[in-house]
Design a protein around this nucleic acid. Sequence first.
DNA 1: CTACATTTGTGAAGATTTTCACAAGCGAAG
DNA 2: CTTCGCTTGTGAAAATCTTCACAAATGTAG
Lengths: 180, 180
Amino acid sequence: MSEELAARGQTTAAQVRKDLSHFGSFGKRGLGYRVRELRASLQRIIGVDRPWRVALVGAGRIGLALFEYPAFRARGYECVAIVDSDPEKIGTVWGNLTIRGPEEFETIVASLDVELIILAVPGPAAQELAARAVDAGVKGILNFAPIRLNVPPRVPVEDVNLIMELEALSFAITQAQRDA
Amino acid sequence: MSEELAARGQTTAAQVRKDLSHFGSFGKRGLGYRVRELRASLQRIIGVDRPWRVALVGAGRIGLALFEYPAFRARGYECVAIVDSDPEKIGTVWGNLTIRGPEEFETIVASLDVELIILAVPGPAAQELAARAVDAGVKGILNFAPIRLNVPPRVPVEDVNLIMELEALSFAITQAQRDA
DNA sequence: CTACATTTGTGAAGATTTTCACAAGCGAAG
DNA sequence: CTTCGCTTGTGAAAATCTTCACAAATGTAG
């Protein structure tokens, strides 16, 4: 069973068991893990056993792509607001939401109880919006802007930097060719 | 100087120096690093001292967002072809490129010398297209499909899984609250 | 109830990564 | 030419992570 999980996760059985042991004991010796139970336990540990309220900040191409990505909602991330600074876009309707202006940002976060933001704005605007989000009570940021956000350590930030991903590929390929 | 680089990279001076030492000696003791030189050396090591030819596979929202992202071209990643399976899209023009059908995929890769693909198609289609890309000579894959691609180890794959990034945020927040 | 076949959970060993701390080298100043 | 202040490059130590290997459980069969 831990063997099977290891194969799926591209790791080893011992690693799976050790990792799980950091959070508790989930299996039965001689038997394995009961899948539904393990799944539920892990969901609780990760914190995805309840929905999360998300605001999309930046209604550009990336913002749109994310907004339309059905897996988000399916996994419990519910987009409750969209903010953009482009006057052309403010007032536009996407799905069931109307795009709001940045001056309403704090109000929106507070009134809709936004916990996470997806920050998909150009680099220069990102830092200020991140700071305002944190002040307004946002608890985490998924950052697509190619800058390192300066926020208090209690607010986790996940950076998505596609350029760096491509560079990692370039490096791996270059390296492999050098060895050959 | 290594201090400054460390601050920027959210790490320590010793780490910066140790990391660099794996590839050679770039600074001058007592002096620091000459920025232009170091930069050029690193670009050569990473393999971004020359352009890379990229094909976009999947012309959905994500594909479009990436295609329009100016930083790609600016960093030397040149999109030379777009492939999609939707008959509605085939023949459509994006920028300077016409969207091609998947039956032309191998021909395109060979004739245009595609080295990397950005795989932005729904999960079920991804594995087959990845395999075909590898057979056609593609050297690396940036994968947006939420599956683990099965390709030979000589072909590096970088996965971008936005759900997992959000889950990492959920976990960090949940964990922090538990500690408090 | 006992022996057996399993598979987890986990200390201990081994491997890797990070940090420490300092010698080696460099330019400047005298 | 020598001394001094500074910063890199790097062995050694410390910390962390991964693998190993086996005792502790658990169900099954006799």
